[in-house]
Amino acid sequence: MAYKIVASQCTQCGACEFECPNGAISMKGEGYVIDAAACTECEGHFDAAQCDAVCPMPGTCVKV
C-alpha cells in the first residue's frame, strides 16, 4: 500500500517532498510523484500521512 499524487491538482509547492520521512517524493519531469516502493504510509513515523496532512490541495495526496 502506498500514497499517490493526483498530478492534475498538484501546485508543485514541494511541501510533501519536504515532509516525507522516507524521501519517497521527488520532482519527475513536470510534477511531483511518490515512489510506491519507498512509501510506508508514514507507518512507524507519524500518525498521519505527512504528504496528505501538509498538502494545500484537497484530495491530491491519496491512498491507492
Partner: peptide, 14 residues
C-alpha cells in the same frame, strides 16, 4: 519558498 505550512482563505496557490 514555494511550500507553506498553513492555509489562508485569501490565498490560492494554484
Amino acid at each position: 519558498a514555494p511550500g507553506c505550512n498553513i492555509q489562508c482563505n485569501y490565498c490560492n496557490r494554484k
